[in-house]
Amino acid sequence: MELLGDDPDPEIARLVSASAGAAVARLRLLRAALGPAGPARPGGEAQALVRAYLEAAAPLRFDLGWQVGADEIDGARLRLVLALVMVARDALPRGGSIRVALAADDAPGLDGLSVAFHGGGAELAAETRAALAGQVAAFSPRTAPAGWAALLAARSGTAIVVEVGVDGGRMAT
């Protein structure tokens, strides 16, 4: 804002503010998804993190469904949920809906986790599906979240099952 001078155009100031807010939302989600697992987080806090990330994709619109069977989500499960949300968001070029379902924390390992997506033109690219299956040696910016999700799942002794349908799909452990 300092670069705009003392009397910035209100429209420019609004655009700069919106861009900064979107960047902060993306960075917060990336820090939580890619950083150390850390302690458990309240489910509401995790949901707010995902919602802010999806809202940062304006003008695309996303509907978030959130069904979590526990008050808190442990760090390992949260990182996997966030990585799969990034994959789902990337599979929705025109916006759509993302549904997160997570069983109670007493489910073994990372079991009981599901991220579904649906929207016009939704598609998981072949290289993304391969990365989710852990079958990619070198990752691109598009496949990195999927590869990270596969690595997190493998570390916990599980794998990601991918179901693809017309204009949508589901990734689950």
Rank of each mutant, 00 (worst) to 15 (best):
W66F: 02
A18K: 13
E11L: 06
S17Y: 08
R94V: 00
G65D: 10
L64I: 03
L82P: 08
Q47T: 00
G95H: 07
D71Q: 12
A37K: 06
A32N: 04
E11K: 03
P8R: 09
F62N: 04
E11W: 01
R31D: 15
G38T: 04
A91T: 07
L54Q: 11
D90A: 14
M86R: 15
E72K: 03
I12A: 15
R14K: 13
A57C: 08
L80F: 08
A32E: 14
R94W: 09
S97D: 13
V100W: 05
R77N: 11
D74W: 04
G65Q: 09
A25H: 04
R28W: 06
A104T: 04
A23S: 14
S19Y: 05
M86V: 05
P42Y: 09
D9L: 01
V68I: 11
A57W: 09
Y53R: 12
L29I: 01
R41H: 13
R77Q: 12
L34V: 06
R41A: 13
I98L: 10
G69H: 02
A33T: 03
P93R: 12
L60D: 14
P10Y: 08
A22S: 10
I12K: 10
L29Y: 05
R41M: 13
G96W: 11
A52F: 03
A22Q: 07
E55K: 07
L30Y: 11
A33M: 02
V50D: 14
V68N: 06
A25E: 05
G75I: 01
D90Y: 01
A104I: 00
D90C: 01
L15C: 09
A46E: 15
L82S: 12
I98S: 12
P93M: 11
R31P: 00
A104Q: 11
F62T: 04
D74M: 01
A37V: 01
V68P: 03
D63G: 06
L64F: 05
A33Q: 04
D63N: 05
E55I: 00
P10Q: 07
F62Q: 08
L30C: 06
V81A: 14
R31Y: 07
A58I: 00
R94F: 10
S97V: 06
A101H: 09
E11Y: 02
V68A: 08
Y53H: 15
F62C: 04
V87C: 12
A22K: 05
P59I: 01
L54F: 06
P59S: 10
S19H: 12
G21L: 09
D9Y: 02
A101L: 03
V100H: 02
P8K: 10
A88E: 13
R14H: 10
G21P: 01
A57K: 12
P93H: 13
D7C: 01
A52D: 15
A76L: 09
A13R: 10
A25L: 02
A56G: 08
E55R: 12
D9I: 00
L27T: 07
V24E: 15
A23H: 09
Q67E: 14
R94A: 14
I98Q: 08
I73M: 14
R14M: 06
A57L: 07
R94K: 11
A76T: 10
A18S: 12
F62G: 07
